[in-house]
Amino acid sequence: MGRTMEWAASAEHLGGFPRRLVFTAVGAFAKAVASLLNSSYVHNADTLIRLVRSRPPGVPLITVSNHMSTLDDPLMWGFKGFPTFDANLGRWVLAAEDICFKNAFYSYIFRLGCGIDAGKCIPITRGGGIYQEHMNEALERLNDGAWLHTFPEGKVSQDDAPIRRLKWGTASLIVRAPLTPIVLPIVHHGFQKVMPEKFMFSRRPPLPLCNKRIDIIIGEPIEFDLPKMRQMAISQTRNKSFHINGWPCTSPDVLDEAAQRCLYATISEQIRTSMEILRNFRKSILKS
């Protein structure tokens, strides 16, 4: 499978003018909805802004969050003080190919950074596995030291329920990146009221709703001792039989598929636990 319209995502495409244009337009939309038409309350915003603006050169950033509406991205970056309009600082986003890239027009617009996922979008084929070609593209962006945002739950859920089991794609990128990314968990609540899935006649509203409370809880970076975790995964899966799908071995420790599965599950659970702590922290703030 080739890479869908990758040239449109290049910063050099038409001198970068189309990208700046759509980032300005979508950024203005996000600011208006999140900061003017609704009330956004953000905890620990300085940590996110610092990592976006001034993390060490070449160090990639992965932010992970729950997924409560189709407008989570871009609205979650529309709070006051966040550099929403800077296309150079803008995130890359993993976006569903069957929704955002279903024709040439959509593909071009989403590659630039417009639409539901208003970052610089990378299409992901649902069910295509963690070693599909576009995951390699995401890995290349991390290798460049870029910022990537993912919704590791894999789909929208508007229930105020515990964080579900996470897909392994984000964990695989953390492991495969030559330089371990900074991983920052975020949990939000309120976008499901701004853009409910079943507003009228079981459909979404034509425009975002107003006068809602939005809470964005930003955590601290999650630390992974990857060398130790790799060795534990190898040890735990040695001499055990697993169903094999034909995954390639990974370097530098030459992890076979069984060890990869163990490692990805461990990392995903660590991320899920961090997100669940933030979800409960939000509830404790409301009670106090």
Rank of each mutant, 00 (worst) to 15 (best):
E257Y: 09
S157V: 07
I244P: 00
K193Q: 09
P18D: 04
F281V: 00
E220V: 06
N239D: 15
G219S: 04
T63Y: 03
F79V: 02
A161H: 08
T250E: 15
R176C: 01
P181I: 08
T250A: 05
P205I: 08
P178C: 04
L173Q: 06
S251K: 12
T266D: 12
S172Y: 03
S54E: 15
G113T: 04
S235K: 13
T24V: 00
I124W: 14
V42N: 02
D72K: 03
P205N: 06
A34K: 01
T4C: 09
T150I: 07
A28T: 10
A8N: 00
T237D: 08
Q260P: 01
H188N: 03
G119A: 09
D86E: 10
M195R: 04
F101G: 02
G78A: 08
G58L: 04
S202P: 00
I217N: 05
Y131A: 04
S235I: 00
Y131G: 00
K193N: 11
P83I: 11
H149D: 04
I122K: 12
W7V: 06
S40N: 03
I244A: 10
I277H: 13
W147L: 03
Y108L: 15
D225A: 06
Q158K: 07
P252W: 09
G2E: 14
L71W: 07
E197S: 10
A8F: 15
R282V: 00
G78D: 06
L89K: 07
L255R: 03
D256L: 03
D117A: 14
F82W: 07
N239G: 02
M232I: 08
W247P: 01
A146K: 15
E269G: 00
A87C: 11
R238E: 13
L209W: 09
S274A: 15
N136H: 15
L14Q: 12
V183A: 06
F79W: 14
R279P: 01
L209Y: 07
C210V: 14
R19N: 02
S251T: 10
N38I: 07
V22T: 12
F29A: 09
A177V: 00
P162Q: 04
A34F: 02
Q132R: 06
S251G: 15
E6M: 07
P181W: 12
I271C: 05
T125F: 11
A265W: 08
H243Q: 09
E97N: 09
M68N: 09
I218V: 13
G128A: 07
D73P: 00
N280T: 02
E220I: 01
I216A: 02
L14V: 01
K120N: 13
K31S: 06
L21Q: 04
F242L: 05
N211T: 01
C114N: 10
F29S: 06
R238L: 10
P56S: 12
F101L: 06
I234C: 04
H43Q: 11
W168F: 08
T170L: 11
F23M: 12
L207W: 15
K212N: 13
G81A: 10
I174T: 02
V26K: 04
R261Y: 10
S69F: 05
L139S: 03
P227Q: 07
H188R: 04
Y41G: 00
L21D: 01
S235L: 10
V156F: 05
S251L: 09
W147V: 02
D73Q: 02
R50Y: 08
D117Y: 14
P196N: 08
A258V: 01
H134Q: 10
